[in-house]
């Protein structure tokens, strides 16, 4: 790894000031993406600013309508959180399926969203549940946040502080893991909540996207059959050795139907029927 200056920010203001001062700073959240990229020499920052000790980024707050998750919350903590499991099990399932247990013990929701890997799971949750990204400067709606391959609405130095998930009536997430990396070859979040019915897909394209035709069909009938015949255009989908665009398009359909079944299943949402 290259040489760099390392500092631990104690407050958001600290972090922002350090970022401002540096030539080419990177924030370090859980490091599960940044460190591998730095090891390969694909990122060569002059300064690395650790966010681990910033109290403002920690914590989970749950109300009946909303779940707020601090940006430095580890995936394992989201997965294991009892109230989240009760209110929004699809989110627990999603967080509990990222990487592996050791990665989940380090990786954070803020880090994942700031990186916006096209095969990451959290983007599907944020867009598929209509969450709001809160930064040290503003709030950003999910629809405006994701801007394609590793691109987001964040300005240089802007930090995600928390993510606010509205609690939907029902939701389901199904992931088809890449056989080697275990990122999402395709992942689909389906939800029926305050922002209407949403179907968000990760892994299949250059970034997370919604499927309006499925959303409209599910609005009429929230059943897997309702979306059985909706074709997914594969023109813009990713094609690689592990899944052609056509296969990914097919999987979007299968996983969406399974996500609807999960969302509608009393086992997942018995408490909110």
């Amino acid at each position: 790894m290259n040489e760099f200056k390392f500092m631990r920010a104690a407050t958001l203001a600290d972090a922002a000031a350090a970022f401002e001062k540096a030539d080419d700073a990177r924030y370090l959240a859980g490091g599960q993406t940044l460190l591998p990229v730095m090891k390969q020499g694909l990122a060569v920052p002059s300064d690395v600013i650790s966010l681990a000790r910033i109290g403002e980024l920690a914590g989970i707050a749950v109300s009946k309508e909303r779940i707020d998750i601090g940006a430095m919350t580890r995936h394992a903590d989201v997965a294991a959180h009892k109230e989240i499991r009760a209110l929004l099990p699809a989110l627990s399932v999603l967080a509990g399926g990222i990487g592996d247990p050791h990665v989940r013990n380090r990786g954070t929701i803020g880090g994942s969203l700031a990186n916006n890997d096209p095969a990451a799971d959290y983007p599907a949750a944020v867009l598929g549940l209509g969450a709001t990204i809160v930064t040290d400067e503003r709030t950003i709606a999910a629809e405006h946040y994701f801007q394609g391959l590793f691109a987001t609405a964040l300005e240089p130095g802007e930090l995600i502080t928390r993510v606010e998930f509205p609690v939907p009536r029902r939701a389901g997430y199904v992931k088809f893991p890449h056989p080697a990396s275990r990122y999402a070859l395709v992942g689909v979040m389906v939800s029926d909540g305050p922002h209407g019915i949403r179907v968000a897909v990760t892994g299949a394209g250059a970034g997370v996207f919604r499927v309006p035709a499925m959303e409209q069909a599910l609005a009429k009938s929230f059943t897997p059959e309702a979306i059985a015949d909706i074709p997914i255009a594969d023109a813009d989908l990713t094609s690689d050795r592990h899944g052609s665009a056509a296969y990914r398009a097919h999987l979007v359909g299968v996983l969406a139907r399974r996500a609807v079944t999960l969302a509608a299943s009393p086992a997942m949402h018995g408490h909110r029927s």
Partner: peptide, 13 residues
Amino acid sequence: GRSIKSCTMLAHE
């Protein structure tokens, strides 16, 4: 108390 991959964590963390 948590398992982590030590090749993907800075010693200073």
